[in-house]
């Protein structure tokens, strides 16, 4: 039976893992390659590196981190952030990453999705979407640039289009839930799940063991992503999986 995936996310800035709330107030929490190794040993199913480095000079730092990680972590991992061209995609994949996630760059240049999928396969193109509920509650809009810009684009429509263009997986972050630790945004996730047939990774809002159970019990996602929870050792990946197994959710242990 296919298992539900638990995915630690490492936000990397200038070669260090950082964490903040709602993308502000960042604190350094460690070395990305070491943390990747730790999560691998804890039984993480995948990893996501999100490069939030602001400057271009540090792009090579990320490639270097990918190379080192790939040499000692034998599980799949995704790299997102700062990937704007098919050359960027190629560089990251050649360094040893399995997938890239495209967020703002895909909104600005949707052709990047089918170009990337055409060259490297649908399976390595993850469409990352940050969404926030519209003021009138009628749905969700895509926000970019770390939540600062509301594009006015309907998130569900954008995700449908992204999959048509070749995205093989959706990484959905609810900006309403992110940083709140009150649980994943189940209505948003379910709306996405009904709209497309590719796997969906839930992100944003996870603050406790029950939240992992809630998202899988509602069949709102195929995988759940969390960052600060794991970085501060509030929980280990192993704790989450043991708990889910007891509750009857299929996990790899």
């Amino acid at each position: 039976m296919i298992t539900k995936r638990i995915i630690p996310c490492l936000d990397v800035r200038d070669g260090k893992v950082v964490k903040g709330v709602n993308f502000v107030g960042l604190k350094e929490v460690g070395d990305p390659v070491k943390l990747a190794r730790t999560y691998y040993e804890q039984g993480a199913d995948e990893l996501v590196f999100l490069d939030i480095t602001a400057t271009h000079e540090h792009r090579d730092t990320m490639v270097h981190i990918v190379e080192q990680t790939a040499a000692q972590v034998f599980m799949p991992f995704t790299v997102g952030g700062g990937i704007r061209t098919t050359d960027d995609i190629r560089r990251i994949l050649r360094a040893g990453a399995d997938k890239v996630s495209l967020n703002s760059a895909a909104v600005r240049n949707p052709d990047l999705l089918q170009e990337g999928a055409g060259m490297f396969g649908d399976q390595c193109i993850v469409l990352a979407v940050d969404g926030r509920m519209r003021k009138d509650g009628s749905g969700w809009n895509v926000v970019i640039s770390g939540g600062r810009i509301d594009t006015g684009i309907d998130a569900i429509e954008w995700i449908r289009e992204g999959v048509r263009r070749g995205a093989g997986e959706i990484l959905l972050t609810s900006m309403d839930a992110d940083g709140t630790k009150k649980g994943f945004d189940l209505p948003f996730l379910k709306a996405v799940r009904e709209a497309v047939s590719v796997p969906v990774i839930a992100s944003g809002g996870c603050g406790a063991l029950e939240h992992f159970y809630d998202v899988f019990a509602a069949d709102a996602a195929d995988a759940a992503l969390a960052a600060s929870l794991f970085h501060y050792n509030e929980l280990t990946v192993g704790d989450v999986k043991e708990y889910l197994k007891e509750k009857g959710v299929p996990v790899r242990l």
Binding site: M1, I2, T3, K4, Q123, G168, S197, R252
Partner: peptide
């Protein structure tokens, strides 16, 4: 009816 691609760990 499950998501396609199959992505993840299976027995």
């Amino acid at each position: 009816d499950l998501p396609v691609p199959q992505i993840g760990w299976n027995e």
